[in-house]
């Protein structure tokens, strides 16, 4: 029953986020601050992880293609498909849940514990709009980060293939271009936008409605990581079935 109540409260929260907007002049600066905090500050880890994941995918694919009749270009093809369809949007999102989601929960949770949210409410500020709306808008920039992740994943794969002597550069690049379906990229970005909304709102929910002290802020961050990841994994399945099935 508690889960159902929480789901209801989550949707009520989403409704409140879009009510009584904060002045645009203030909101604009909040959005820019959040883009910096949530997106730009995450680019380093996204680039790093994507590059090596792309490399690992390439090596594992190459090691499993032992039959000499299978063309080497298949390594590039498999890397592209894995990175664009799954690793860049989904794997990066799970990393972002850990980094950005924890930050969102702990920052809002700390504001709750130290009565800063009460202070906003007492002043007549719609605290949900003030705190959560800029995060949602900032996360609309997330597809750009995922595009970078796709590029870096493929680049990592190329480096691993060429410098690890798994495939010549020409074959790998030919594989990358082979049977390319543009809708796969659209599908990846649709997923990414949905995940961006989830990453902005579920951790906000856990931070905003938390009760207790410093210890509970930590617990709320952990709970938020678990639930946001679960929702992303389930939605990943549902969206894949709907869009590609």
């Amino acid at each position: 029953m508690n889960y159902l109540a929480d789901i209801g409260r989550y949707f009520i929260m989403i409704g409140e986020v879009f009510k009584k907007p904060t002045k645009w002049r203030i909101m604009r600066s909040l959005i820019l601050k959040e883009i910096d905090e949530l997106i730009f500050n995450s680019l380093g880890i996204i680039i790093f992880i994507s590059f090596f994941i792309g490399g690992v995918v390439t090596i594992q694919t190459a090691l499993n293609l032992t039959n000499p009749l299978i063309p080497k270009s298949l390594i590039g093809f498999a890397t592209r498909q894995s990175v664009i369809l799954e690793f860049a949007p989904t794997f990066t999102s799970i990393i972002m849940v850990g980094k950005v989601g924890s930050y969102i929960t702990s920052s809002i949770g700390t504001m709750r514990v130290t009565e800063q949210i009460d202070a906003l409410e007492v002043m007549g500020v719609n605290s949900l709009n003030y705190l959560v709306f800029p995060k949602i808008i900032a996360m609309f920039m997330y597809p750009f980060a995922v595009a970078i992740a796709m590029y870096m994943g493929v680049l990592g794969g190329w480096v691993a293939a060429v410098f690890g002597n798994f495939a010549p550069s020409g074959d790998f690049v030919q594989g990358l271009q082979q049977e390319f379906i543009p809708f796969h990229v659209t599908y990846a970005f649709i997923k990414t936008l949905v995940f961006a909304f989830i990453i902005a709102t579920i951790p906000s929910f856990h931070g905003y409605f938390m009760r207790g002290g410093a210890l509970e802020v930590g617990k709320a961050s952990t709970t938020s990581f678990v639930w946001t990841s679960v929702v992303i994994i389930v939605l990943n399945y549902v969206l894949t079935q709907l869009l590609l099935g």
Binding site: K19, K20, E115, Q116, A119, G124
Partner: peptide, 21 residues
């Protein structure tokens, strides 16, 4: 709800822990 928020703009509150941003 809007009238309540307007009324709250006429209120000032000093919290026990100050609650400064």
């Amino acid at each position: 709800l809007d009238e309540r928020r307007d009324l709250r703009q006429e209120m000032g509150m000093v919290f026990q822990g100050s609650a400064l941003f």
